[in-house]
Nucleic acid binder design. Sequence first.
RNA 1: GGGCGGCUAGCUCAGUUGGUUAGAGCGCCUGGUUUACACCCAGUAGGUCGCAGGUUCGAGUCCUGUGCCGCCCACCA
Length: 915
Amino acid sequence: MNMDILKKILLMPRQMIKAIYNPENIENKWYSQWQEKGCFAKKIDHRKDSFCILMPPPNVTGVLHMGHLLNNTLQDVLIRRARQLGKSTLWIPGTDHAGIATQVKVEKELMKEGKIRQNIGRESFIQRALHWRDKHGGLILEQLKKLGISCNWDAKVHTLDPGYNLAVQTAFIELYNRGYIYRGKRMVNWCPVSLTALSDEEVMMKPQQCMLYHLKYELTDGSGFIEVATTRPETIMGDTAIAVNPNDDRYRSLIGKTCLRPLKKAEIRIIADEAVDQDFGSGALKVTPAHSAIDFEIGQRHRLEFLDIMNPDGTLNSLAGNDFEGMDRFEARVMAVEKLRKLGLLIKEELYSNNVGFSERANVPIEPKLSEQWFLKYPKVEEAKAAILNGVIKLRPERWTKTYLHWLDNIKDWCISRQLWWGHRIPVWYRKGYDKNDPTNIHLSIDGPEDKENWEQDPDVLDTWFSSALWPFATFGWPDLKKMEEKNFDYFYPTSDLVTGPDIIFFWVTRMIIASLELLGANKNHLLPNEIQERIPFKNVYFTGIIRDKLGRKMSKSLGNSPEPLDLIKKYGADGLRFGLLSMAPQGQDVLFSEERVEFGRNFCNKLWNAFRFRQTIGEEQDKTIEGIFSRINPKEVSLIDLAILTQMLKTLIEFEEAMAEYEFNKALQIIYSFFWKDFCDWYLEVSKINQTSSVIGIYDLILRQCLLILHPFIPFITEELWHMAGYGTGFINDEKLDTSANLLANIKALGLEPAEDSILEVAMIRELISSTRAMKANYGLAAKKDMTFYYKAADGQTSIIAKYNEIIKHFIGAAKVIETNSLLDLPVILTPAGLMYLDLASQIDLASEKQKVIDEIQKITQLIAKNQSKLNDKVFISKAPQQIIDGTKKLLEENLKKQVELQSLLDSLNSLKT
RNA sequence: GGGCGGCUAGCUCAGUUGGUUAGAGCGCCUGGUUUACACCCAGUAGGUCGCAGGUUCGAGUCCUGUGCCGCCCACCA
């Protein structure tokens, strides 16, 4: 670039930074600029490493909640940091069509018009659902933009996109052909409200108070009755046997006899089965094979009749008999009990608490139901375990490994068909009028058979999670090779980090791993380690904590305990919110949300803002490029205090880099927070005001610049704004190359400066002296006085720091004079590592309380000395502890002894003072 | 029933392989019109690290047992 132009740019009058940091203005401004200028766009440089994140797609029905905020902030931190480290990045956003959830929403809309979906038919229902999706579905992503997330919006995917649908259909057919998908009549979890089967994962167990009824089943030979206990008397009409344990002496004689089913009377057998628990109830179980999972198994073993007495909606059907037909299952329960009571068959009823499975969506008890469904037998289970065990996929925190493995060890076939209309239609056709179970009458293909008129398509759709499992590669256009190439699948896959909640390990994470292992690459029964490595969907999984309210409850809309995220952004700014969230969310630990933390984040942003305002008051017309900054630092002008802050910056950067490498974001933030606020602002900015050389200003610029850069992934808006305001560059901050601690160290060394730990120690001594002296003043109620005289006596063996830093110390402690002395004085004093500081105000102090303080202090130090000495006298300690610890203890003892002597002499002098 | 996590200052939480006298923010209290910031500055106070044993020269940290809180999985009708 032409030097004149460069100068012009650099010397351009810059905008004044406004006094008050107002996040709202700058956040809206920058987000639209980032998008317009294509900041987040995929820029592929094959010489660079790739870095890819798949956003867990929020449901189109979803409402933005705190979990989304934390989750997406973490992803944004990762992706922005990756850009700074020079990687080619891709962050794929998207939404999930959310089968049941969406269908329920649309059905509710219909209900307002007094209709149900069957009234309008499948086609127009889907049209309505699509319309609903288009209207509401993008909202959550739009809301997330307020948070500043930098995804590749042009790569956005929706799970019902045509391309995605192709992936789902292909996966189904492929898995069917490989023998993993089958159709079968089995016991499933049936939701009587949503009228669909559900997977085990969609059933939530809830403790319930109910009644346990003890009933008489009369023996048909007239020899008495058998007592049966049940919580579900409404299913009696479906009983086809009574089962007892074969080892149960009470009932041995009854096995093989028959008894009378008391409702819809019929003769049923008494059978023996090991599954019966002798200790529960009466030890005799009524067997209802069509309405209970265990009874179903017993029924199969004993070839019992399966009497399905219920309609899909939970009402009883004609098989339940005239008295019950059409009645809801819970009404039927009441009526059944009533009838039994009248018949004199109810022995007793008792309160009983048990766990009942509830439909996750409709929140009603699920009904175990015998039903014809599609099932998936999970492939590549061993490989999925190996991927984690061998560290090919790393889970953070690692402890989730156990949960993950436990699920895979106890995995059961997955019911993947849903009796819904909204979702991916199952690509299976049946020949009209023929037996569906005969394979020759079944056709599987994406487009269907040519003579469609002779076939009918399976009416069911697939579980939403089936499509979610394909997310890692369906988002890249799989199985369309051309699209995959366009989307640089080979470059970005396997993706880098997945950030999600541990509550969907089974729903999603595991299934993605399995789907990827099975479907990417050739069909093989077993994979070799390198094949696993190529196929895995991601290398790291970061499990976030769950955000809870102050009482530890999960945040949910129904509890009304979740703050409105957008309100928080409005109040504290997206940056403040991000900072707060990250600082309260260590690796995968659940967090109790507190608004104070968000305030904390906002305050930090304000501090940052004002540090830049301060810099601006000094005058800005200077070269702020990194080269320019270094050229302004003159090594001859650099004081020890300056060197100390440089050294500390490097130390901070190293610690920060380590924390980031370990995904310890809250630690990383804490490290910068403390350096920036405590060391840089509170100390260095203040101390350097006294002699603000041009080198000092150079150091300001260097540190401010570096802090902006490393903070940018966490708080992108304010750092972008300040980057431009302060004139560090004309481009976007996220495109800036990040100087590492190693780079900066090299640059500093090139100036002829040698960062040294000693400088930090010396500065620490000064700060300690100042701080102690201020405390002493405050103790006497003299904090505000500026005209005091102090006497300073250097610590034994310590060179005086007062001579060197007189001005600074006077300024900071508020003194008119600090006079150096060699003797102990009869004055109030404070001990510091740098020496004694006396306050010349003997007449004004409360001698008695002052003495007491010193006495307390002596007592404390004496205890410490005793502790040190007993340690050092302990031969075992001496022989076993490492030398470093022993030396440390010795040194400590010496220091404490010295302190003790000094305190004693102080006490003596206080005693000798006249009151 | 099986498993996991938490229990550290009034509150919310740090505390890496055991190592010298346990930290931060908020809040409390005291003082401050220090011209970058009251969303700030300075300074106090506040903890037998859930409890009980054990290992060790040395335990918030490791082991055993136990209590409370929360979560996950399984489940007896």
